[in-house]
Design a binder for these strands. Structure first.
Lengths: 351, 351
DNA sequence: TTGTATGCGTTATCAA
DNA sequence: TTGATAACGCATACAA
């Protein structure tokens, strides 16, 4: 660090000023109980007057644990991020740890860069979130040499990376069940592009299983794809509406709240009311889901809890390496939040 | 770093494997042109087979600049954050820098902690955002010894910290002007608690100036306070509605989009339509402003540009310390985004 | 072109 | 309880 004049102040200068050795200064920093109260006081006031802050970089060099965990996310703009972060922050804080954050901006290249960045900053472990984690990451993660935990996603590779998330297949199945229980059988589907997108694949699988369970055939004509964001939801709905004369949809099932909201806007712009003329179902239960009108009926993911679990797993892996790793996928319970965007419909006899 | 077995792989082991010295390995990393092609090749394949990645921490210890800038924000949950971050990320990236992020969760104590954390990680400078930056921060920032730049806020202290933001007084004045031009004179006001909240103070000042300019008296009875978030906007509107028989408001002016949206929901729950029965005006133009119905008319802040300017300022201050600091407040232009939540009203003769 | 020696700021080990 | 001294992983003068 530097004082106001720009001169670096190190532990050694504090030591000189306090008339002790560098080791002692280090001790008042890390193991204050081991040092004499008087000297401790002298050292502290020396630090104060010299305006000294320990260099975390050098610190990480000497000691193994930095008490910092890395967080690598696809994009901070994703609406779910604030809740996930809330859980992570809460839990790290409760354990006296810090979070080092890196945003990959939906780029695989930047995700790799992120691993390297976090690694180089000597984090004790990494929490990773991405739409896709395939076998290409296996080698990267394996050779990283520090614990990695997945949230909201799972790996399709062979390396058994611990993962905390909801059972998306089941969640989407439940979503369909709900719509069917409300009388819907002609259900439009707005999903992901399915490329580099395991989330989309799983949710689509759940959607299909749901339909199959109720004896409703899955139709490509009822499906449109987007990128999880508002505009793409709007556009997908637009395309669905162009075929509406044939399709005669009564409900739209979306794999993200943001696309659901986009769809609602598109419907509105075409003079269709939600849920009177068309029901809309979301997925995620992000904070905005209850800010739109009608409030969005959706599947709630326990983002905060997922974040907390992930932190605990990383801590356990890094602090108790003797314990077996919590490998594999850990499902946390989702639940359906019934609000106002889906209505009950009388079954169309023609179907 | 460690390989799969958990053993650290350093530059030295690469050197051994390649049959050269550590210095040579360091050279192929930093000045490859100085190394014989053959040795270079041997070293590279040694790095490859040992799965070696340089430790940037140790690297940063030797050199001064970490090419990382610190970002200290009040709370990641704030909806404006994603756009601000977008600008910051874009600009840092363009300059080959990284961002180290810290979330203060609206706590002054944690903000102080954040300064220390970022400082200890040797960032080249810090971008700071907070609802309040008073003279108490002067000392902290001054002795930090690295450049600090403010965004979306300004300091009330004496230390001339550079600041990038919009002119909130003027922006709120414009908001009132717009409402008045639409025929509104009985305007409700949902603002902040004004304690530890310079943003609220400035926007309230702008609101009052606006009213005064049009000869409309400011009335406490038309004002309610909240914490910028959805629920508090709802509650504030609720209280306003309780006096509506006396107040006969035709429009509500809010100092944040989120509170405006909360107010809209409250109105809806009371059977009042926006904008037919009541106009609502927001502030910020966060991404959700266009996701609600009706879409929110609001004041747009150029978050992305503000982020970019802040980064440039930090870089200039840290890389060209000889140049004068860009001290003082730099206003970036706001503009009013006319959407659908405000309607024109015929002036009430009784007013 | 390459190797040796030293420093960066801190922690850890071992004596005292 | 404290102090020397040796790491930690890398970069860089300086020497060869």
């Amino acid at each position: 660090m530097r004082n106001a004049g720009g001169v670096r102040v190190t532990i050694r200068e504090v030591a000189d000023r306090a008339g002790v050795s560098a080791a002692t200064v280090s001790r008042v920093l890390n193991k204050p109980e081991m040092v004499d109260p008087d000297t401790k006081e002298r050292v502290r006031s020396a630090m104060e007057s010299l305006n000294f802050h320990p260099n975390a970089i050098a610190r990480g060099l000497s000691s193994t644990h930095t008490h910092t965990i890395g967080l690598l996310v696809p994009a901070i703009q994703d609406f779910f991020f604030d809740e996930l972060y809330f859980g992570i922050d809460k839990e790290t804080r409760a354990n006296g740890m810090k979070v080092l954050f890196f945003d990959a901006q939906h780029s695989r290249h930047r995700a790799l860069e992120g691993f390297s960045f976090l690694r180089q900053h000597q984090v004790d472990g990494i929490i990773f979130t991405s739409q896709l984690v395939d076998e290409d990451y296996d080698a990267v993660i394996e050779r990283l040499g520090i614990p990695v935990v997945l949230t909201l996603t799972e790996s399709s590779g062979k390396f058994p990376i611990p993962s905390y998330k909801t059972d998306e297949v089941k969640a989407m199945f439940d979503s369909v069940s709900y719509l069917v229980s409300r009388g819907h059988r002609r259900i439009g589907f707005i999903t992901g592009h399915m490329q580099e997108d395991s989330t989309g694949v799983l949710r689509t699988e759940g959607f299909k299983q749901g339909l199959a369970h109720y004896g409703i055939p899955y139709r490509e004509a009822f499906t449109q794809r987007g990128d999880y964001r508002f505009d793409s939801g709007y556009a997908a709905m637009q395309r669905l509406l162009e075929r509406q004369a044939d399709n005669r949809l009564t409900a739209i099932c979306c794999i993200s709240d943001e696309m659901a909201i986009g769809a609602m806007h598109c419907l509105h712009d075409h003079g269709l009311r939600v849920p009177d003329d068309m029901s809309v179902m979301g997925f995620d239960d992000v904070r905005v889901a209850r800010m739109v009108m009608p409030k969005l009926t959706t599947i709630s993911q326990p983002f905060t809890e997922i974040g907390q679990h992930a932190v605990r797993a990383v801590l356990q892996m890094s602090q108790e390496p003797s314990l077996p790793y919590p490998t594999g996928v850990h499902y946390l319970p989702h639940h359906l939040v019934e609000r106002a965007s889906v209505r009950t419909v009388t079954v169309d006899a023609a179907d």
